[in-house]
Design a binder for these strands. Structure first.
Length: 134
DNA sequence: GCCAACGTTGGC
DNA sequence: GCCAACGTTGGC
């Protein structure tokens, strides 16, 4: 099983929206690198849900609830989406500031490629962030 | 609200 | 196929 981190601006789709709705289409990705990662996702893979711009912190965990499929909001047919299902909140959100200060997390794409909206997370990085949330 | 970073588009 | 122009993202 793989781990990922997905970003959303709370003004368009927030963690509390996700908690309420439980399961949602993760559509609107218009970046090839992000799309390629979406494509690699497997059913049951876990993802951190990160609030960009407002909050700048990891709020909780969701899981991949469908494999890669057509994005109905994309008329070009180049992009796609998966479904994301609510799993659990973090006990305490982990902020971008904390992540930047943590030596083991310096390779996280969140830091190196701030514009990428879907990125892989290693087992070690996952465990580290979970530990920080306790 | 600004601006740096960077991905995408389109003209050549 | 290159690269300048442009648009968008997201941290500050």
């Amino acid at each position: 099983m793989a781990y990922w981190l997905i970003k959303s601006e709370p003004s368009s789709w927030s963690w509390s929206d996700q908690v309420k709705k439980k399961i949602t289409h993760w559509d609107g990705v218009r970046n090839f690198q992000a799309r390629n990662y979406l494509k690699q996702m497997k059913l049951g893979d876990l993802c951190f849900f990160y609030h960009s711009v407002v909050g700048k912190q990891i709020m909780g965990v969701v899981k991949v609830a469908s494999s890669f499929k057509d994005d109905p909001t994309d008329s070009t047919g180049k992009f796609g989406m998966v479904d994301m299902e609510y799993v659990s909140p973090l006990e305490n959100p982990v902020t971008l500031e904390q992540i930047k200060k943590t030596a083991q997390l310096q390779d996280l794409s969140l830091i190196k490629q701030s514009r990428l909206s879907v990125m892989p997370v290693t087992n070690a990085q996952w465990d580290c962030i979970i530990a920080m949330s306790k």
